[in-house]
Design a protein around this nucleic acid. Structure first.
Lengths: 219, 219
DNA sequence: AATTGTGAATTCCTTCACAGCC
DNA sequence: GGCTGTGAAGGAATTCACAATT
């Protein structure tokens, strides 16, 4: 285990590796080499080895990696051994959909609350039973429900205000869908998903077919 | 205008710049320097200049950039001057939400069709009037409706099959939300959004607070 | 023989710093 | 004087290639 700082590109790939290992495990594969994994899932074997090596020596030379042991290690490294409780701020289309989205209600994650300002929504629940609260109640509910990750799906204009509330409520990790730059206190991790940028990037490639589709890259 | 190939990091930033310029324009600002823009929106001024320089000389030395002219240029470069027509494959929670999502129904983009296999959904429309078709009709409707970008929100197990259909229907750009690696014919641009990886990355930072939140980086 | 873990080489991206221009 | 456009420098991420290990 090194003490260098580890790139986010590396930690995001760990998630991918874990997902691959889970598939191998379901298929009854017990041992896998970096090469076999790279070939099956369109990854790079040297990169797999290097990424893993930041966190320890999990392989056996001449043999490969134990699928289940490596999966356990990655689960631990990614903090997925303890359950995380999520809330979403903004009960619009996107917020409600994400509240019910499988990926946000799977191993390791549980959606426990939505927040909004719309009186018509407050007091109701989503189809799957997630309660919608007044955002004024954010702090007490975050504390009571032990929420540690927040997802922001409010309009850009109010996103900074909401993030300030989240910081004040003690949230340490935020996933933001609003297309604005947000400031957070140090010690708080802010991650961004910008769907419009992704779409416009596709538009760019449609208009510039000469450079289009530079081969099919790994994950 | 250079003929080097341009990184996706650069083209994605063009979207950000365009968004910033639109804000400046709405505020009545007519001219902006790379420095002023960098400060206001938490960007890097050298990077703005370098990114723009790949596409032409849009600035005036000693003065800066004309907000409206630069916005026009970026709109053109990103292919947002001609309208794009979108479809979504998979009318589950996420698919339906994205169909109604503002970012996918704004300047330059129009959502025209959803596809699914569920007989109960086929023939109905979303709240906002987007029709849901049988995925068997994909090709004729893509052709008739002039769809050029597809969004994939089907379960992982069937995503490759759906992408094959999209390729066969002549779609040239795909935004994939399914957490699998997908193969596409060359000449087709595939972009990926992996919400689970984003969440797990937050989980990693929560478990490793020593490295947490390495300052508040630009967009 | 096979595969890991890792320095070295390479490629890619960002930032600096300044000549050139308004 | 102020700002752009850009070559050069610096830094980061990926890939190569091989010694070490089973």
């Amino acid at each position: 285990m090194k003490s260098e700082k580890i790139s986010e590109l590396t930690t995001k790939r760990l998630s991918i590796y874990l997902r691959c290992l889970q598939i191998l495990d379901r298929n009854g594969i017990q041992t896998v080499s970096s090469r076999a994994m790279a070939e099956q899932f369109h990854l790079n074997s040297a990169q797999i080895r290097k990424d893993l090596a930041y966190f320890g020596e999990f392989g056996v030379r001449g043999v490969g990696y134990s699928v289940s042991h490596l999966a356990q290690h990655l689960t631990k490294i990614l903090g997925l051994d303890s359950r995380h409780r999520l809330c979403i701020c903004g009960a619009g289309n996107l917020g409600r959909a994400l509240a019910e989205y499988g990926g946000f209600n799977s191993e390791g994650f549980q959606m426990v609350a939505l927040f909004d300002t719309d009186a018509k929504k407050i007091g109701t629940t989503t189809r799957t039973g997630v309660p919608i609260y007044d955002i004024k109640k954010l702090k007490p509910i975050v504390v009571k429900e032990n929420v540690d990750i927040a997802v922001v799906t409010v309009p850009s204009e109010v996103a900074q205000k909401v993030v300030d509330l989240l910081c004040a409520a003690g949230i340490k990790a935020i996933l933001n869908f609003a297309p604005v730059h947000l400031r957070v206190n140090s010690g708080i991790k802010l991650q961004k998903v910008d769907l419009k940028v992704e779409l416009e990037n596709l538009s760019y490639y449609l208009s510039n077919p000469s450079v289009s589709a530079p081969a099919n890259l790994p994950e």
